[in-house]
Design a protein around this nucleic acid. Sequence first.
DNA 1: GTCTGCTACCCAATCGTTTGGGTAGCGAGG
DNA 2: CCTCGCTACCCAAACGATTGGGTAGCAGAC
Lengths: 345, 345
Amino acid sequence: MTDIRPGSVTLKDLAAELGLHPSTVSRILHGESDTARGAAAPATAQRVRDLAKKVGYSPDPQAASLRTRRTHLLGVIVPRLSDLVLAVMYEGIEEAADDANYSTFVMNSRDDTAMQRRKVEVMLSRRVDGLIIGDAHLDGNILDELSVRQVPFVLMNRAIAGFTSATCDDTLGGALVAQHLWDRGHRVVSVIAGEKYASTAVDRTSGFISRFRALGGAIPESAIVWAPFDTMGGRAAADTILRNTNRRPSAIFAVNDFAAIGAMGAANSLGLLVGRDLAIVGFNDTSLAAQLPIALSSVRSPMLDIGREAVKLLLGVLNADRVESVRLAPTLCVRASSDFERTAT
Amino acid sequence: MTDIRPGSVTLKDLAAELGLHPSTVSRILHGESDTARGAAAPATAQRVRDLAKKVGYSPDPQAASLRTRRTHLLGVIVPRLSDLVLAVMYEGIEEAADDANYSTFVMNSRDDTAMQRRKVEVMLSRRVDGLIIGDAHLDGNILDELSVRQVPFVLMNRAIAGFTSATCDDTLGGALVAQHLWDRGHRVVSVIAGEKYASTAVDRTSGFISRFRALGGAIPESAIVWAPFDTMGGRAAADTILRNTNRRPSAIFAVNDFAAIGAMGAANSLGLLVGRDLAIVGFNDTSLAAQLPIALSSVRSPMLDIGREAVKLLLGVLNADRVESVRLAPTLCVRASSDFERTAT
DNA sequence: GTCTGCTACCCAATCGTTTGGGTAGCGAGG
DNA sequence: CCTCGCTACCCAAACGATTGGGTAGCAGAC
């Protein structure tokens, strides 16, 4: 811990103090293995490093990037950080970026197209080296523009064909749930499917449907309800589903834990006991799931790793490497909300 | 929406194109009301602005701050963004900062002292203009160091005597809960008090105790359990409290919604029906509270505003204004979890 | 004795803005 | 005619780091 304010001492100061030229000091402090490579005499290098440490020298990043044209800044855009899922992914991002000596800006777009555009412009006007986009919509028009403008970016959480992304294998996640519910004897099921513009919602739903049908089950279109990713959305959707007495399901798959929690509320209000009368399974296994009064079954997705992978991918892109999208495998955590056999009616 | 990458056109380019000097262009584009004040002829100013807009000129912030010694960057440090409370406050920060043309870095410190120090250093090495500290510990040693180093900063969410902060009036919040529980007939109560190093925990607890005692109630030390701010912590604390058969309370105040949710889980496991056998009240009124199977009573704190106020305060400090801490008033939202009369035993 | 190759440096331009200090040109007042 | 005060600009020096291109000095080879 230095006791002075960073920025008070510059490269030039160091150089003057030691009777060297700033460029020499720069090379010593910056070059990694240049010590022995004609950059400077080992003794000099040591002197420089010692002084730098002693006076708490820290290079001015704006000055450096003015010259190098790289800011070591990454922009992250998410729908909202108050969505626990994105917040956790961001923790992974922060960690990985920090390790690579990058800093991150993060902004909320509320999944609003105009806001997305605005935030992107703000990020670019800050001259970020690249973007991590966590709010991609399936009609990826903004992404095409970014490509044209040659802005380096990768997607996170939501995937769009043609762009590299770090996501959970949502299709598999949906399939795991279908298998689980089928195994427990459920034949009439519904899905609270999330927002249609999000690949997470679409893939989890289609993964679920495909597997369920492959097992011999039937899911009519009417059993799929698209709704916002939050508790309110889940509650309303579940209400609709459960009030349809023609076809009341014995199990509901909500593609998001918060929607699942809302669904539990709706079930409760209708006098259904979740975990006995009705099975509910969520997605993401947020920290709440296991702690609810009736513990919620959920698909655990490696959120931290998704964030970290997104950074790795973006750094790859910046480095002009060939990068491949990564798709991390989820696992199913069965808990009280669905841990029972459906007895034939 | 420009179709080129920001940074491709500079002040010098604009000047050359118009046959002007870069400094003239700078003054026109930067000066607010300088148009008529001898800075430039109105016609010229218009030409400059038109061209700037047309070619999508956006000034290079690193170059500007190299010269001006101000980065228009704010650093925000929070325990964890995956804590909904801080995430929402951050949304307020982002909004207010954006309005003032500042950008924000946010980092998680996990309430770990070493990490707090590290993150502060990272922020300072990025040359932020100031810091918003959302993870202050009551033994504010780091803060003293920052003061000595003349780093501009303000506190958010947690207050420490002697430093300016934007917080909820936690003492009042605690008092509101005490009054409510007392009014409903509860005489034996317990508090899940949170972490001792956080002013939020301490103030909410002491506000509660003071009011309860002022009303004539008794709260022994043993009725106060300090625990982490999450579901696990709340669950464990509630378990301890409820298993103490010598003094089983009819109501529990958890200073945080997540802890309250954990407590609900514990109550449930012990066969107690929250909202009939046991009253539980949380704090912050996070979006989940109202949607839980048994809706949770909670003290609503103006989280967004706290974030916004923190930015205002910090900008004030940067502007060398005299600033006063702000303390926003909370309100109590009574819901099913505590909306019943305690009948005398 | 010259040339080559190496070490250990130095020099100066450059990145894009900002800003204190000019100055040319013009009309008006004395 | 000189001076004053405008207006509408221009000039150049910063800010701090980076980097391509030197160069002085020395050792060894031919």
